[in-house]
Design a protein around this nucleic acid. Structure first.
Lengths: 225, 225
DNA sequence: GTGCGGTTGTGAACGATTTCACATATGCGC
DNA sequence: GCGCATATGTGAAATCGTTCACAACCGCAC
């Protein structure tokens, strides 16, 4: 399969291109230029071309890219041609929402089990799936051949749950808990932190306010740029 | 305030450091070395030192950083010493979960209003807050002085909602909808895409599987690394 | 088959970020 | 005070990512 490694930054954008391409296909588009795809993906065309060139030369000079073919190639590259069973640990607000999220199924991800440490929740059904005890993880992973786990617990127990997942044989973890967790080298780990994103926005928001102050001569400290 | 601009990558890590530091403070720690903070944040110590050096020289050579002081400085830099009212548009699974999420309040973010286009939902209360009609956005933004909006709608209407937010005076948008949205230059925009993260994990997962195949001589194509 | 407008693919320049490595500074014991 | 162990702050090097700019190529018209 992969000859030269695809840069991380590119991997992060492929799903975005894919989504744009699928929409175009649904709207009946059959070829697309890097320029058009770039606009639909919120990046610039040089980046699109570089990114796509890492997959191979699937475009046609003077014409553009065949939408259907490109969709196929990106899907293949991302591994979306196969079925990915996932398990969610921690069925609080967020776990609940993720268990019901439609966007996963459309892309080949299927939530096959829900785990929660709270005995009161065990047995309860969410979106048709029963919540199970943590002890069942190894069995679940084995039976459904689960490779990916999502941690949606409170931060305090995130590491513990992740350890259990790794022990049960899970290979990739997506961490939604507000905590840093560590896993062995051979396990992939990514995180989504809702409040971090807000804090980043707050930073830039504050900076904008500070700049406005300067413009209007309201600055307390600071020399102008 | 800011003399030299702080690199984006650094801004993205400050909230992580902050969380680690707050935990340390709660556990009674009073000074911390870049090495320890790095471990708690999942990065390396050189990065921590470079990052913190952008805020100023708040450490003491031979000793480390004063936890409480550093917390204060990072908070100030991120703008977390002030109160940030936020509004959520789209009260589906995810919007619901976010409206109930406790992690925001702890960091100075307060959800002050919920918006939904569905007339059937309007009036319903979530976490004590009534769901309101989109038409109320300008009033809400004005009355609560809202600067930040979160878009949790389906992808198809995300752009429309974002436009409404911008029109109403919102300055920063956090987009959870699976769609690319564009905003004027003076509005900040960040996105969180749940299924993109899964797709990235799938990519690396697939690559691991391919590598294992090679090791075991099961590869179809491909020369060894 | 020649010319032409359009678009890719990609070296090379540029910019941002990470890492290295060490001079510089501190606290402490004596 | 002096020396030692420790840890920061930061130039410089290395790496990674983006953008530029253009040669190579395609499809089409004539």
């Amino acid at each position: 399969m992969s000859k030269r490694p695809i840069p991380e930054a590119t991997v992060g954008r492929l799903p975005v291109y894919l989504r744009a391409l699928v929409e175009m296909a649904e709207d009946g588009g059959s070829v697309v230029s890097s320029e058009t795809l770039a606009d639909a993906s919120g990046v610039n065309s040089a980046k699109v071309r570089k990114d796509l060139s890492h997959l191979g030369s699937y475009g046609t000079r003077g014409v553009g890219y065949d939408v259907a073919y490109l969709i196929h190639q990106i899907r293949r590259e991302l591994g979306l041609t196969q079925h990915w069973p996932v398990v969610i640990a921690g069925v609080g607000n967020l776990g609940h929402a993720l268990a019901n999220y439609k966007g996963f199924g459309e892309r080949g991800f299927e939530v096959v089990a829900l785990i929660d440490a709270d005995p009161k929740k065990v047995g309860e059904k969410v979106n048709g799936l029963p919540i199970e005890a943590v002890e069942n993880l190894p069995r679940i992973v084995r039976e459904h051949d689960v490779a990916i786990g999502m941690v949606c617990t409170p931060g305090q127990v995130a590491q513990e749950v992740a350890d259990r997942m790794v022990e049960a044989g899970i290979q990739s973890i997506l961490n939604f808990a507000p905590a840093v967790i560590t896993v062995p080298d051979d396990v992939s780990l990514r995180k989504v932190d809702l409040s971090i994103e807000l804090q980043i926005l707050a930073f830039y928001e504050q900076r904008k306010a500070a700049l406005d102050d300067v413009k209007q001569g309201r600055a307390k400290t600071m020399a102008v740029v």
